[in-house]
Amino acid sequence: MSEFISLVVNGILIGGVYALVGLAIVVIYKSSSVFNFAVGDFVMWGGFVMWTFLVAFDLPIWASILFAVVVMAIIGLLTNRLLISPMAGQPLLAVVLLTLGLSYLLKGVHSAAWGPTWKAFPPLLPSGKLTLGSISFSADYMWCFIIAMVAFGIFSYLFQRTRMGLAMRATAEDHQLARSTGISVKTIFSATWILAALLCLVAGVLLGSVNNLGPQLADIGLKGFPVVLFGGLESVVGCIVGGIVVGVLENLGAAYLNPLVGGGIEEVVPFVVMLLVLMFKPYGLFGLKRIERL
């Protein structure tokens, strides 16, 4: 029993990071109804940009964070300005295909710049095992969760309490109305892309430091999609719930099903969950029900 609870706790902790990736998808989807299929590559880039400053350039941690934030913000901004914005008026299919092309491009530049090998972060987070009664969990997972939740908190504050966040929410409701109240929708789109890139940076660094940093991070980043579908595409709260559920199921699957099927089930559990969600509760827990009128 205590093993079960430890698994659940560890799942919840890693789920916090998945929630961040989910949030990066939701932010963009809410404002411009674009699915960003390159989100996994943003996560991978986030991890590698941070690694470059921290390990390859050997900068102190505060400077690396600063530089990594700047670089990722620029990448997010350029993506929007050069690729997504000019596609206004094109069918959504084209924009989504564009993000797929971008994902290819980012993968290519990544492997040219960093190569296919795995990198390791210096220990950023305290490692070791923590025990609480009979439940044990790793300390770095706990720190991951805490950092993820802090990032989530900062995002919620920006989104709910600032003028910028108000403008974002207005844009998410209705582009035309937002524009008529003097909000620059173009700026808001850029802001959401920057925000999404920064969320991916945090997620990439956290995922890169608990596991290792490698090209597979792009596929791990794609687990953001099961997360948002579970929680509902329009919902910020849904991200946390979805992230935690995906994290827990993945952990339980790895512990109880892997002996039966011979390993690696954690890669596929989130997607099985996603398929079931699509079949039985397609708009997720907190998503808006689509009401269709002619």
């Binding site: 690729l83 000019p86 596609m87 094109q90 084209a94 295909l97 564009l98 797929l100 092309g101 971008l102 994902s103 290819y104 491009l105 980012l106 993968k107 290519g108 530049v109 990544h110 492997s111 040219a112 296919p116």
Partner: peptide, 19 residues
């Protein structure tokens, strides 16, 4: 480099065509 170049070329072609 072969793998990365073909990825870059491919991604670029796809993005430029869509654009």
């Amino acid at each position: 480099v072969t793998a990365s170049i073909s990825k870059i070329v491919f991604g670029l072609v796809m993005v430029l065509f869509l654009r």
